[in-house]
């Protein structure tokens, strides 16, 4: 039974992928387009990028920016969110501003980022930070506000100091929801790095796409870049998901 399930778990998605590739190939042939690449041309593009050493260079450049922007967002967003969740007055003071800044797409910040940071790595790092700090802070706020009151009452009963209360109860009680926020934020960060690299810098997967189009309409490389972005995004999500499997947080996710 489980063996059969595991088999379908691999076979079904592969089947869907194969169908999509066939449909893609057929659509290009039927339309007679000589600009849009067929799947095997994209594969050839990827191989060409690997041979030139560009793929690794660009992937590393993009991941470098995401790592910095995202780490900064976690370091600032989590404590800030916990603080706002705990102190009602701080939440009242800051929440309207957060809710106003949050809907501004990070893309809209690109001109500002270039103005402040020129065409350096700092511009996309700033944009990634902006994109991921809000989901992280908001999930930390909600995590504190939704904490079961019984845990706090039990902790108060045992006479914990403020610091012990934070370390032994508030932090572990909110961690599952914070990790969920971090997962969402990493997804957004990966979306934003591509957009930022199209405009603000001269390297990375986003730059690869826009450069391949501008310098000779190399759509095989454009789609190759897209495929790589998708694959790396998938791997990043799988990695963050591993965090949810620790015993200390597993209680926070129903039926997993």
């Amino acid at each position: 039974m489980t063996g059969k399930l595991a088999w379908t778990k691999i076979a079904l998605p592969l089947g869907v992928a194969a169908l999509l590739l066939l449909a893609w190939d057929a659509a290009v042939r039927v339309s007679g387009s000589d600009i849009f690449p067929r799947p095997h041309e994209v594969l050839r593009g990827i191989i060409q990028l690997i041979e030139q050493g560009l793929l690794l260079k660009y992937v590393v450049a993009s991941l470098f920016r995401v790592t910095w922007g995202f780490t900064l967002a976690v370091l600032i967003g989590v404590p800030f969110g916990l603080f706002l969740g705990w102190y009602g007055w701080a939440f009242q003071a800051f929440n309207p501003m957060i809710q106003m800044l949050r809907p501004i797409s990070p893309i809209a910040w690109i001109p500002v980022a270039i103005l402040w940071f020129k065409v350096t790595d700092k511009a996309p790092i700033f944009l990634i930070f902006l994109a991921s700090v809000f989901p992280i802070a908001v999930s930390a706020i909600a995590a504190v506000q939704n904490m079961q009151p019984v845990y706090l009452r039990a902790a108060r009963n045992f006479g914990l100091t403020q610091l012990q209360l934070f370390r032994r109860v508030i932090l572990p009680a909110t961690l599952p929801q914070i990790i969920t926020g971090i997962r969402i934020a990493l997804g957004v960060a990966w979306l934003v790095v591509v957009a930022a690299e199209m405009i603000a810098v001269n390297s990375g997967l986003g730059y690869l796409i826009i450069d391949a189009r501008n310098a000779g309409k190399r759509y095989d490389l454009v789609v190759a870049g897209m495929v790589m972005i998708g694959l790396i995004g998938l791997v990043l999500d799988l990695l963050v998901r591993q965090l949810e499997k620790f015993d200390e947080v597993r209680w926070g996710y129903a039926n997993r």
Binding site: Q148, V150, Y151, R153, A154, V169, P172, A173, L175, E248, V249, W251, G252
Partner: peptide, 10 residues
């Protein structure tokens, strides 16, 4: 407590 105050992370 009625609603069980055992800490699920411990």
């Amino acid at each position: 407590f009625q609603e069980n105050g055992v800490f699920p992370w411990l």
